[in-house]
Every structure is written in structure tokens, then in C-alpha cells.
Amino acid sequence: MDSNASSHSSQQEKKQAYQQAAEWYLLMQEQPLTAQQQAEFEAWQQVPLHQQVWQNVRMFDDKFQRLPKQQIARTVQHFDAKLPKQAAQLCIVLCSALGLLYVGQGVRQQDYFPEIWSFDPVEIYHTERGMQQHLTLQDGSQVWLNSNSKIRVKYNSQQRRIELAKGEIYIETHKDTFKRQLSVRTSHGDLLALGTVFNVRYSAEKTELLVRQGIVRILTKDRQTQQDIPAQHAATFNQDKISPKSYQATHMLWRQQLLVVHSMPLGQFIKELTPHYQGKIQLEPALDEILISGSYSTQDVEKTLSIVANTHHLNIQVKPQKIQLAQ
């Protein structure tokens, strides 16, 4: 079998797996699986390709859960009225409905929509508030996820790509045997790693880059702006503009669960701590501009804020899932 025929066969297998996954997904939405159906589903998942595809379907399901149920029903009914109910089309209905809902709702780019038609295997990793995670990818690259972060890892024969959907990551790249370039993608553009160690923080408004070693090339989403950022330098960018940023190695100490600041307004300090706390932190507006300096732990936010309150003679109230700071 030649390479083209093999590739075509592989794509057909992936499409069939997606169709089967869509059938399982819709079946589970209708009612709980019977014992026999559960056994059949578990047997189906024993195939590695099926596991990868099911993980992707669960990712789509995560998107659905964020959207109003009434609009989901209306959109699915719209497709249901126009398309026959053959199993081969269920996946198209599912993904098309999701795409329309996503655009129609104007979902913020805090967790942007992935490419759903590439059929590339996707590995998804995420951390909850107050948690961090260290990964070794299949090529040997090391990735650390900060608190409340999420990535999608897409490796195929041509590329090594990490999609940063939210939060912050630190990467130590590894030389690839197949000479595939490693890139990090956010909704603002791509970061191309040229043998490097770097840190990326993503928010809806911008992506922040700190390069510790090597060079990272920024390509904004519109592909009209690019810039190489060398070691010991930093930058921020959005979809069409790249701006220089002061390089501070202390910003990468989050891996040691440390927040090191110098003359940072208390309001901003609270924002930096919030992803590491399971509950809510309330700050009296009059205290926003108090300047904070020092090295603080992100592992025990209550203790950190108690130290800040004591240093600046503030009142602190600690309740279940809530901390309040006032004069």
C-alpha cells in the first residue's frame, strides 16, 4: 500500500471513530447506559484511537455545558429538521451546532475554540485553582502548568503544537528526532520555539512571553507582525501588535509557589493570588493602591494575606471560601 492510500485509510478510520463517538455521546445524553451498553462502551474504548477521539468529544461537551440549554435545544432542533438521522451525520450535527453556538454566543477568548476538523490526536491537561502540574511530553519536552491553566497538546508527523487555552505554562523544549518545530498557540497568535526555555501567560486581552534561554519568534494571528525575542527579554502581544516588556526572572518563580513583587499595588497583588485560591478574595476599593513588596507563598493564600494585613495594619476576615480585607 502506498503512502497516499495509507493516509486515506487512516483518515477514514478517524472519521469512523468520530461517528461512533457521536453515537455514544448522544446515547448518553438521552438516558444512562444499561449494563450491557456500558460494557460495550468500555470495550470500544480499549482501542487507542477511540480513547483519543472520545477525549475530544468530551472537550466539545465541556463547551456545551457553558452555553444556555434553551439555545442548545433550539440549534439542535434546527439541524434536526433539515438533516436525516443517519448515524454517519450525527457527528456533523454535533460539531456544526457547537460551532454556531460558540460564534452566536460571542464566547470570550479565555478558552478559545480548537480546530475541530483536523482529526489530529489531542491530549488535554488542566489544573484546578491552587494546583500545579509537571508533564513530560512524548518528545522529551518538559511543561509546567500553573494554577487554573489548560493546554491541548497536538503532535503529528509535521508539528509539535501546544494550545494554551487559559492560564500559564513554563516550557523546556527538547531536541526533536524528527526535526518538528515546537510552537505554542493562543488566540493572539503563535510562538515558535527555536531551542529554548520560556514562559507564556495567556489572558483574553493579551499573551505575555518571557524567554529564559534561546529565541522565541512571535507571529501574531493576522500574520502581518512577527518578532524574534531573545534570551533575557520579554514581550506582550495581541492579534495584531507586539510590545516590549520588562524581563523579570522572578515572574517565573511560580513553579516554586512563590510570588515575588516590588511596589505592586495591592489590587494587582490580589489578582495574582486569586488563581491560587479556591474561594473569593474581597478587597476594599480604598486599599487598591497600597504598594506591596516581598516574597510570598501562593501555596497558603490565607497565611500570605494575613502577613500582608499585619504589615499594613489592615483588618482581615477569613471565612469558608472567602477572605475579606478592609481598613
Rank of each mutant, 00 (worst) to 15 (best):
D2G: 05
D2M: 00
I323H: 06
Q77K: 15
L26W: 09
L287Y: 03
Y102D: 15
G294Y: 03
N315S: 13
Q110S: 11
Q268S: 11
E172I: 09
L145W: 04
T236D: 11
Q109A: 12
G130S: 04
K241H: 14
L314D: 11
Q138L: 08
D190Y: 07
A235S: 14
C95L: 14
M252V: 10
I116F: 00
T196E: 02
Y125S: 12
I307D: 14
V211C: 11
P230A: 12
S10Q: 05
N238L: 06
E123K: 13
T173Q: 06
D2N: 10
P285K: 03
D111I: 04
R201S: 12
Q110C: 05
S157C: 04
Q37N: 02
N146W: 02
V211K: 04
T274L: 02
A309L: 12
Q232W: 08
R223L: 09
A22T: 05
T236C: 12
M252A: 15
Q71S: 14
L253K: 13
Q256L: 05
V103W: 06
V197S: 09
E123L: 13
L137A: 10
L273K: 03
P265T: 04
Q321V: 01
R58K: 10
F64K: 07
L194R: 06
A21I: 04
I171W: 03
Q133G: 05
Q19V: 06
I229W: 03
Q248T: 13
G279N: 01
I281Q: 07
A234L: 14
Y112T: 02
L194I: 06
L182H: 07
E168Q: 11
M264D: 09
E302T: 10
G99R: 04
I72N: 11
E272V: 02
I292M: 00
E30D: 15
A87F: 07
M264F: 03
T304P: 01
K280A: 11
Y112P: 00
V184K: 07
N238I: 04
F64R: 09
E30L: 06
Q71T: 12
I171Q: 06
Q299L: 14
H174D: 14
L49M: 14
E163M: 09
T173L: 08
H188E: 13
W117S: 09
N156C: 08
E40A: 12
T274H: 01
K82I: 15
L145M: 14
W254K: 15
P48G: 10
S246R: 15
F119D: 07
S293T: 02
A88P: 01
I215D: 06
W24V: 02
N156K: 03
P275Y: 05
P32H: 06
E289R: 08
R66M: 12
Q77H: 15
F79S: 08
A87V: 13
N148M: 02
F41C: 09
K322F: 07
Y170V: 10
A286W: 00
T225K: 12
